[in-house]
Simulated assay, not measured.
Amino acid sequence: MLLHKGCYRARLAAGPADVAAAQALRTLCFRTGAADCDAYDAACMHVLVEEARTGSLVCCFRLLLLESGAELGRSYSAQFYDLEGLRAFRGRMAELGRFCIHPDQHSADILRVAWGAVTALVDAKDVQMLFGCSSFAGTSAAEYLDTFAMLKHRHLAPPCWLPGVKAPDVFRFAAGLRPRPDPKLAMLRMPPLLRTYLVMGGWVSDHAVVDARMNTLHVFTGLEIAAIPAARKRRLRAAAG
């Protein structure tokens, strides 16, 4: 058990049945039709967030540990982004992927418990950078223009870490974005996972990848653990305690 807070608990998958349950939830959330499973599943730790009383699965994600940026070629994200700049990162890294919450579940405590579990694993494994693909539902950029404009103006990666374009179908933030995005609309359309990354000091790529198989747009997202504000770290560790 990673943690138990209020109505929810988080734990690592104990075997193939747990991984299959996570894959089933991913299939439901991402609406992939065919079962959402891939070769990366075997290399990852899978975390399940469950309703404590019933054991119902309400959220899941997976983590892939890398010893340094030199191992980024093993990551899921490396299929879609040129991560050459990040290969110089010397600390341990973890790729957070396939994060999803059951569409019928709306409690904010689920996200809090999930981040508490992430924090517990980051601390236990001495992770220095968390990264992954933050997904937007659908493959049309039109409804996310305010969000993408805000990301471009406020949250781009440092030049030394900025991912390059690799995927064949991308939406570049330099093209067609509003010079003055509507902040309320931008936040409304921003996925909760990405919003949490950003309040902790995270950053994103300068383009979104159009992923037709997963029916999403996604942006590369990075978070250097050392850059998280001290007050935020205390809250995260309190949630993980």
Score class of each variant (00 low, 15 high):
residue 185 L to T: 06
residue 166 K to W: 11
residue 19 V to T: 12
residue 71 E to K: 06
residue 120 A to K: 02
residue 122 V to H: 06
residue 89 F to Y: 05
residue 124 A to Q: 06
residue 179 P to V: 00
residue 170 V to A: 14
residue 187 M to R: 00
residue 227 A to K: 15
residue 27 T to V: 01
residue 48 L to M: 10
residue 79 Q to L: 03
residue 108 A to F: 15
residue 230 A to K: 14
residue 65 L to H: 11
residue 100 C to F: 14
residue 162 L to F: 14
residue 42 A to S: 09
residue 38 D to S: 03
residue 68 S to N: 12
residue 202 G to L: 04
residue 51 E to D: 11
residue 57 L to K: 04
residue 43 A to P: 04
residue 178 R to Y: 10
residue 230 A to G: 13
residue 135 S to A: 04
residue 229 P to C: 04
residue 146 D to R: 08
residue 97 G to C: 03
residue 118 V to I: 13
residue 61 F to M: 02
residue 142 A to Y: 01
residue 106 H to L: 00
residue 157 A to L: 11
residue 125 K to M: 06
residue 219 V to Q: 07
residue 203 W to M: 04
residue 21 A to F: 10
residue 99 F to M: 12
residue 192 P to K: 03
residue 46 H to Q: 05
residue 1 M to I: 06
residue 31 R to C: 07
residue 160 C to P: 09
residue 165 V to S: 09
residue 197 Y to C: 09
residue 7 C to S: 10
residue 103 P to V: 01
residue 194 L to I: 00
residue 32 T to W: 09
residue 75 S to P: 11
residue 153 H to L: 13
residue 32 T to A: 13
residue 85 G to D: 02
residue 95 E to G: 15
residue 47 V to A: 07
residue 25 L to H: 13
residue 138 G to K: 01
residue 122 V to E: 12
residue 86 L to M: 12
residue 144 Y to N: 08
residue 109 D to E: 11
residue 94 A to P: 13
residue 208 A to T: 01
residue 231 A to Q: 09
residue 69 G to N: 12
residue 78 A to Q: 12
residue 161 W to E: 01
residue 163 P to C: 06
residue 70 A to C: 02
residue 14 A to N: 10
residue 20 A to E: 10
residue 176 G to I: 00
residue 104 D to N: 13
residue 84 E to C: 11
